[in-house]
């Protein structure tokens, strides 16, 4: 017989993505065997993140402030908006330190199989920003897979009536990759997106 609080915590951990019953049980055991301050710190961090973090009112990335540090920074070029599916994509681009514009987090990608249509994404909010923020270029940086490409297509269609340049991040061979081992689809994209050298 498992004690009620243990059962409850297993159930809560199982709600996390990629966590099954066995992993949840291991996590619970880890918490139980941890010193009290460590377990308390975990609990405090969970409460704090829900109380203090919210979406930026402009770009919808997660932040402590009303407007996030990227949107508020005078060093960023606010005439270029990079549209990403989620926070993880934004963080990956920030880690690369190659983009100096601002962002717009869509909150997912179009996925009819999961019941997500264009109306479920923050496309209307993006269009409002384009109307009111003097945007010159929108970089569509959705993932280079079937659903990401379809989302990019929806965005292109929605953005076409606006006086704004629409660009798409390049797709093809990754740095450190090998042509010999690239599949036909990736090579095809690489040739489609070739540029003057």
């Amino acid at each position: 017989m498992i004690a009620g609080p243990i059962r409850q915590l297993i159930k809560e951990f199982q709600r996390l993505p990629g966590v099954g019953e066995k992993t949840a049980f291991r996590l619970v055991m880890h918490v139980l065997e941890s010193p009290q301050p460590q377990a308390q710190a975990l609990a405090d961090a969970l409460v704090e993140i829900k109380q203090r973090i919210r979406p930026c009112s402009r770009c919808f990335q997660m932040t402590e402030e009303e407007v996030c540090a990227i949107c508020a920074s005078p060093k960023r070029d606010s005439s270029v908006i990079c549209v990403v599916e989620d926070q993880a994509s934004l963080m990956a681009i920030e880690r690369a330190r190659q983009f100096y514009g601002i962002y717009h987090v869509l909150g997912g990608r179009v996925s009819p199989m999961e019941g997500v249509g264009p109306g479920d994404l923050r496309i209307a909010e993006l269009l409002k920003r384009i109307e009111g923020e003097g945007v010159k270029e929108v970089v569509v940086a959705t993932n280079p897979n079937v659903e990401g490409e379809a989302t990019a297509l929806y965005l292109k269609r929605a953005l076409e009536p606006y006086d704004v340049e629409i660009t798409r991040i390049a797709r093809g061979i990754p740095m450190g990759g090998d042509l010999e081992y690239s599949d036909a689809l990736t090579l095809g994209r690489a040739f489609e997106g070739r540029m003057k050298y």
Binding site: S111, M113, V146, A150, L153, Y154, D183, A184, L185
Partner: peptide, 19 residues
């Protein structure tokens, strides 16, 4: 890869139908 039906994603209605 044997065949890719990637042209389906070039049209919103086709993509939705294929999904």
């Amino acid at each position: 890869l044997i065949s890719s039906y990637s042209r389906i994603t070039e049209d919103v209605e086709r993509f939705t139908a294929a999904s």
